[in-house]
């Protein structure tokens, strides 16, 4: 038995920590990735159809409101992905599981891009409805801070050569930055902002037409599935980068199963 397979096959049955091994998670992630991308495409197709052909024109905003179908999902994902990234970073820090830290690193670029989308679509929505592309109010500013947190995390990890040290440093930054998430979420309540309050809440019924809500939720699910797909795809590349000297990656290469 080779050295690299001992660490994985130490227990005879796959237990709770089975997939915390990069060697075990690598093929699983590879099998799951296309399914998440396919789900994202189907959900997006339904969501866009409802958003453009079923949901009615808004009484006050006219057709400009149709930006909501991508703005809100992107903004939700930008915050949610940060929490998931910080969660995996924390698990990696506490349990010393390499796969968790790699997952955190794999989520960061998608989170940053979702934040960019939330900012760009919001700005394109702000111009016709508020009369300005940008205003330094609490919601917009804290979302911009979120982008800098993602970029800071990526830059910090890129600057440290030793992957395990990069994981630890990134985890500390990610965990400190978590404080920004409730600030973004509650900013519209805590401060007097130009940004409207939330249209969807867990405690009261939504303040929008049912078809508008359905289109938005379908696209939110599509963005969610897309994000899982990208994170799984990227984490496999990270595994290869870090395990390039391991026996099992070289075996996959020799068998022609790495393309």
């Amino acid at each position: 038995m080779t050295m690299s397979s001992v660490s994985v096959a130490s227990s005879s049955r796959p237990g709770l920590f089975w997939f915390s091994s990069p060697q075990a998670f690598f093929p699983l992630a590879g099998k799951m990735t296309p399914w998440f991308f396919a789900l994202a495409a189907v959900l997006a197709a339904f969501g866009l159809y409802i958003g453009f052909f079923v949901a009615p024109t808004d009484a006050t905003q006219g057709e400009a409101y149709r930006i909501i179908f991508i703005h809100v999902p992107a903004a939700w994902m930008s915050m949610f992905l940060y929490l998931v990234m910080a969660f995996w970073a924390a698990i990696g820090l506490i349990m010393n599981t390499r796969m968790s830290s790699m997952m955190a690193s794999a989520i960061a670029p998608t989170g940053a891009l979702m934040t960019v989308l939330a900012l760009v679509t919001g700005s394109l929505w702000g111009r016709p409805t508020w009369g300005t592309y940008w205003v330094w109010d609490a919601r917009l500013t804290s979302e911009l801070v979120l982008l800098f947190l993602y970029l800071g995390f990526l830059a910090l990890q890129a600057a440290i050569d030793d992957p395990r040290r990069a994981d630890k440093a990134g985890a500390v930054l990610a965990l400190v930055g978590v404080i920004n998430i409730p600030i973004i979420y509650f900013s519209v309540q805590w401060w007097n902002t130009l940004h409207q309050g939330s249209s969807v809440s867990l405690t009261r019924s939504p303040s929008m037409a049912a078809t508008m809500l359905l289109g938005m939720l379908l696209l939110a699910l599509a963005f969610w599935m897309y994000s899982i797909g990208t994170a799984l795809h990227r984490v496999r590349s990270i595994v290869l980068e870090r395990e390039k000297r391991a026996e099992w990656t070289r075996e996959l290469m020799a068998q022609g199963r790495l393309k």
Binding site: G62, E63, R66, T110, V120, L124, R234, L240
Partner: peptide, 30 residues
């Protein structure tokens, strides 16, 4: 889009651009 074409389609174009860039980045990294 009721006169809001630039803003609505600009937003959707941004999404398409970001997804295209990200998929290209994923493939390059792989």
């Amino acid at each position: 889009m009721g006169g809001y074409g630039f803003y609505v389609w600009g937003s959707y174009a941004a999404v398409v651009a970001v997804i295209t860039i990200e998929i290209w980045l994923l493939k390059a990294r792989r």
